[in-house]
Design a protein around this nucleic acid. Sequence first.
DNA 1: CCAGGATCGAACCGACCGGTACCATCTGAA
DNA 2: TTCAGATGGTACCGGTCGGTTCGATCCTGG
Lengths: 195, 195
Amino acid sequence: MPVAKGSTIDPERTRATIVHAATQVLYERGLDGIGVAELCARLGVSKETLYRHFGTKDGLVHAVLDTRSDRVIHWLTDTVSSSGDRPADQLTALFRALQGWYDGPEFRGCALINAATQHRTDAVRAIAARHVEGYLELLTGIAERAGADDPHRLALQLLILAEGATVVADHHSSARAGELACQAALALLAAAERS
Amino acid sequence: MPVAKGSTIDPERTRATIVHAATQVLYERGLDGIGVAELCARLGVSKETLYRHFGTKDGLVHAVLDTRSDRVIHWLTDTVSSSGDRPADQLTALFRALQGWYDGPEFRGCALINAATQHRTDAVRAIAARHVEGYLELLTGIAERAGADDPHRLALQLLILAEGATVVADHHSSARAGELACQAALALLAAAERS
DNA sequence: CCAGGATCGAACCGACCGGTACCATCTGAA
DNA sequence: TTCAGATGGTACCGGTCGGTTCGATCCTGG
């Protein structure tokens, strides 16, 4: 049955729905872990629709990664900005949010980093790099508010802790990775504030 | 020409040569980034030889990952053990070695973590988990020698820093990731030693 | 009510994949 | 000298991949 019986025809909405659903499936199975045919079946969409909206599978992948990066950065930014003014509290809230993510059954590491590992192409690596840059800006803001001598340096160290915690949570024990990274981050923050 | 004219026939040596060469190619191109045919061409080996030694492509991948993990752990263990008795010096040597790795043109992140991301199977994840465990043992030894209250906790934090530095070096700037992680590690070490 | 666009379902395509089979050729030990 | 085994080269297999096409069906704006 072409065009579901009660469905509204709205290309924009269709596109958004595809991106949203594909985000989960591609994260769970990996970019190459599922073919276009099965992917379309999961999304409840025909191949023609998918190719009209995204051109190629890579086009869908890029759209998925772009929106996922935006969502993650917004999520963390909101988490930080809604946890008061003190840098220590903001870091605590950030790592607590990450820990909550690690604890979920669907956790599979950072989707952007994973994607860049699976598709080592300029396009995907650029999206991942932009994602990391956004992450870094958020952390730089915290480091600046803390009055660190070299905010960029501290921010990079915090980024290392966050990404490292994500890797360790995925491949060792997810139970305490966020918490341990948080303690380390607070220690670095305290040292930077003292100077 | 079957069997190169001057080559020695030695199955063990052939196998080791295949593993060694495949390690580089699979790291550079990714586990799924190269087919068996092209892989064999690169290795200078026929498909029949490869399949007689490893059964399947996965068999080769597992052998490659096993030996790579051993090599990395030995490399880091040697680096640490040949840098004196002071934990701070050992950590400095370890992160300096990592930084040297990041700076190389062939650096593409941690091969074991990458593999587990590309092939999310029990077998590969088990190899990666064992690799991380070996990494952790090395760091735990350092934390114990430092007299930390909770050596396992400090070791996990150091592991987070090392893996995080590897990720950041791969996807942001490789220039200072190891150095910054090292400074953070030394700060944590100093705090643990004070208590 | 009609025309045009959005969608589905399915068939189809060429390319490539992992894996197998066969044979000529060379090595190394008996 | 002989012969079993290791190897290279090549053709081949079924399956799956990303991508295209087509017709039937349904929505929606005019």
